[in-house]
């Protein structure tokens, strides 16, 4: 098992004819991902890399029964592409684009509410279930199939977390990048819940970030669980006075300045295993898996 995507996921690529898309779609197909359709408005009817291209997501779904989309459209076009995907009733949309305006994301969240469509991203490396499906731009060569689920809010540290699982001689069940942006489509809780229920996943690694209370919310959710799998978590940013400050509103809404330490405390209290160095993750994984043996 795995979560959200597997070898049966019927993947559609929005914006398939773009240069970045074709490069990554080729790699995803070679990896074994079941890519069934592409969508580029105005180019319907052609075949691109042997994949049939449609004008709209609805047409593509009707013809190919696609149920998930990976979006390679530019930031400006994300909102309209998402509408198209929601109208077609897709279960999952993964948005790679960097630079989607915040207002567009706010509107996207509004469009998504009450629909069955889940949205991962934007500004994410995507989601990958090793050996089965790759939706996004993950370097598939560093992944291997295994029992550790990874959820990350930082793109680069996702790779670091993968390398740490490898160092512990473990592989990954599914790896999800939630996206680095201010407003994202999915927070930690839905994938964490799925990992808790996934028979293949035995431990979860969470990579948090400064800003936004997603880690605290996730900690609260975890604390209340009756059945828990071990979760190792990391938040970078101890050495920071970060960024250029302007006004207080950001601190006011967070009820004061929230530090990496505050987030780690919340996760520790919830019963997660919190590491101060990202390179300690493999040690904790060794503890967990050697203990289980």
């Amino acid at each position: 098992m795995s979560i959200l995507v597997n070898k049966n996921t019927r993947v559609l690529v929005q914006g398939i004819t773009g240069t970045q898309a074709s490069f990554h779609v080729r790699r995803s197909v070679d990896y074994g991902t079941n890519v069934v359709a592409g969508v580029t408005p105005g180019k319907g009817g052609i075949s691109y890399m042997d994949i049939p291209v449609f004008n709209t997501v609805s047409e593509a779904v009707k013809e190919t029964q696609a149920n998930a989309s990976v979006m390679f459209v530019p930031a400006k076009a994300v909102k309209s592409a998402l509408k198209d995907a929601v109208d077609a009733g897709l279960e999952l949309v993964v948005c790679i684009a960097d630079g989607v305006p915040i207002k567009d994301m706010m509107e996207i969240r509004h469009i998504l509410s009450g629909t069955p469509t889940k949205f991962i991203g934007p500004n994410t490396p995507g989601i990958i279930t090793p050996g089965e499906a790759r939706l996004g731009i993950f370097p598939e060569n560093i992944l291997q199939k295994g029992k550790v689920g990874i959820i990350s809010r930082s793109s680069t540290l996702t790779y670091e977390a993968v390398l740490e699982t490898n160092r512990a001689h473990q592989g990954q069940s599914t790896v999800i990048g939630l996206g680095d942006d201010m407003v994202i489509g999915m927070d930690f809780i839905p994938p964490l819940e799925m990992f808790m229920n996934d028979s293949e996943t035995e431990a979860v690694v969470i990579i948090g970030q400064l800003d936004g209370a997603f880690e605290e919310m996730c900690a609260k959710y975890y604390a209340d669980l009756s059945y828990k799998k071990p979760v190792i978590s990391f938040v970078a940013g101890n050495a920071i006075p970060f960024g250029h400050k302007m006004g207080y509103a950001g601190d006011v809404i967070a009820q004061g300045k929230v530090t990496a330490e505050d987030k780690k405390d919340a996760m520790k209290q919830a019963g997660m295993i919190v590491v101060d160095d990202i390179n300690d993750i493999h040690k904790k994984l060794l503890d967990i898996f050697n203990g289980n043996d």
């Binding site: 809010r153 930082s154 793109s155 680069t156 050495a239 101060d276």
Partner: peptide, 22 residues
Amino acid sequence: IVNGDGIALAAMDLIRKNGMDT
């Protein structure tokens, strides 16, 4: 020199832990 904010923060934490600063 890094290629993401997350990795920048993690590197800075490690540098500080080792007695220097970025």
